[in-house]
């Protein structure tokens, strides 16, 4: 695969993630906007009726704004971690943290397709030397494949385990439990781009399709 094509795919991946995150932030801003507007409505009503503003209404509105600010802060933190995933060619990463970030970035995308994606509790700390950005890109391509073949109401579960040979390295799995899964979508996984991403991850990595998911072994 041409370097240019892979670079375009990497840019497209960044675009999809940032578009999804900006959409989420817009939703939170919309709630803050309506809550501030509601507070303004209460103030005007109180002024017109010449009665004091009920403190409970103010407290409820402030609490609603605070909830959205905390929510937006979490989303921006994830976006920041994603942005820094491309800082280095390779670094030591905790796989549980990577899939937690991955699920946070993609949960809305999965929900839009009627699927639910979650992390299952696995091994405590599995650290590997890898390129986090390319790893996230490869996982996203796996998710897009899964979303194309599974029906609405599907459950996607991700796990992290220690590597197969004496605990070195780590394994990531994505499994789907779908009411209707069809393989005849014309989409291949792993395809040429996925294999190229795998080849560019540090060390000898392995990606294996399984009937209900895929397994990624990292050294």
């Amino acid at each position: 695969m041409e370097q240019r094509v892979l670079e375009m795919e990497n840019v497209r991946f960044c675009g999809v993630v940032t578009a999804a995150v900006s959409h989420e932030i817009k939703n939170m801003l919309a709630i803050i906007n309506e809550t501030a507007g509601l507070l303004d409505d209460f103030t005007r009503q109180a002024e017109m009726a010449k009665v004091p503003l009920e403190p409970e209404r103010v407290h409820d509105s402030v609490a609603a704004i605070n909830r959205q600010v905390r929510r937006a802060d979490g989303v921006v933190r994830h976006l920041n971690r994603f942005a820094h995933s491309a800082d280095r060619e390779a670094e030591t990463v905790d796989l549980a943290e990577i899939i937690e970030l991955f699920v946070a970035l993609t949960a809305r995308r999965a929900a839009a397709c009627g699927a639910d994606i979650q992390v299952e509790p696995g091994a405590a700390a599995v650290k590997v030397e890898t390129n986090p950005f390319l790893l996230l890109h490869l996982l996203w391509r796996g998710l897009e494949f899964a979303l194309a073949i599974i029906g609405a109401g599907a459950r996607l579960r991700m796990t992290v385990e220690a590597g197969p040979d004496g605990g070195r390295g780590g394994q990531l799995t994505m499994r789907w439990h779908a009411p209707a899964a069809a393989d005849e979508t014309g989409i291949e996984f792993p395809g040429a781009c996925d294999r190229e991403l795998l080849a560019r991850l540090p060390g000898k990595c392995l990606l294996r399709r399984q009937h209900d998911g895929f397994l990624l072994v990292l050294p």
């Binding site: 939703n27 919309a30 709630i31 309506e34 809550t35 509601l38 609603a64 909830r67 959205q68």
Partner: peptide, 8 residues
């Protein structure tokens, strides 16, 4: 977004 819908 339940909170948006109720506030609006």
């Amino acid at each position: 977004e339940a909170e948006f819908v109720e506030t609006l």
